[in-house]
Nucleic acid binder design. Structure first.
Lengths: 164, 164
DNA sequence: ATCCTATTATTCAACATTGAATCACAATAG
DNA sequence: CTATTGTGATTCAATGTTGAATAATAGGAT
């Protein structure tokens, strides 16, 4: 499973950790995306719905930061949620640049039903790790993600499962 | 940073680990992709070149498994590598279904030059973790990725950085 | 007020990715 | 030999994603 690269020990260690991280993340994501497809949701549609569900109405720019994606993409995702009657846009009256996205009753019902299943699927996958290992992993990922912080998130609030 | 979800401790632990894993993976990937763009390579183009560089010529189906992507996508990626003169296709004579992908001299020169820079960028990002932490991470990721194994890889051989 | 700068959302073209359908070929069973 | 089944590659349409350009608005500065 190692690397074929000949470098310093430090380099090989970093590459090995990197490749295993990416493969695992990709495997986990692929399984969850396949599951979400059975609920007619894409990964990011789910992420937006879930964020709105747990944090309440938010401007699109905030959603973009939460989902770690671009403004153009959020516009597209929200377009589709609106098309499907799951969310609606409301122009902010105090700052007219801002469009706040709200769940519709239909959207709320869908995410209320879907989220527990999604959470269960995540829990099942992570059952491959012991509770201690999960906590260690969370700590390491926080350290790694924060490094050179790419302005991921403006604050401390992170929705439950967010984008993936 | 936690989750807003009210569930069992086990569920919250898994969700927290999951969300941090995904955010970190996405951040790391975003930074590396941005760097690769300066070399006129996409993430998967780089992954394919790197695999060929370290493992030698391979059939497209093998590349697909290494890169954890679909056959159609590999065809597309290889199309572009061929267009750019970095790789070439050769029909296998003993099994005429198979197309083996080879690096061209130009492709080999490019990846030989690019790979060290990419490796250095990875090493820099992972310097946020101690060597011990990197090894723990690698172990955890292997455990997690193998769970419910989605037939990622046919064997033990994994290219140095692969896809990301 | 007027200018400058920054933020927000939208649009669009280019590109990436998937999944399904199709074709070619191989391998096996009968 | 010839069906049948399986594998590898390609194609295509639908969709997702990015990055750049644009327009509207806000918030100072002067």
């Amino acid at each position: 499973m190692g690397t074929h690269h000949e470098g310093t020990a430090a380099e090989r260690r970093a590459l090995d950790a990197y490749i295993k991280l990416m493969r695992a993340a990709r495997s986990v994501t692929a399984r969850l995306v396949r599951r979400l497809a059975t609920e007619r949701l894409t990964e990011r549609q789910f992420g937006v719905l879930e964020t709105l569900y747990h944090l309440g109405p938010l401007p699109q720019c905030a959603l973009g930061r939460k989902q770690l994606t671009t403004g153009g993409n959020i516009t597209f995702v929200v377009d589709n949620l609106v098309r499907d009657g799951l969310a609606e846009r409301r122009r902010d009256s105090s700052d007219r640049r801002i469009v706040t996205v709200h769940l519709t009753p239909k959207g709320r019902a869908l995410i209320a039903q879907t989220f527990p299943r999604h959470a269960a699927a995540i829990q099942e996958q992570f059952s491959a790790l012991t509770p201690d290992e999960q906590e260690v992993l969370a700590r390491l990922m926080k350290k790694l993600g924060l490094a050179q912080g790419l302005a991921d998130d403006e604050g401390a609030e992170t929705p439950a499962t967010g984008r993936a």
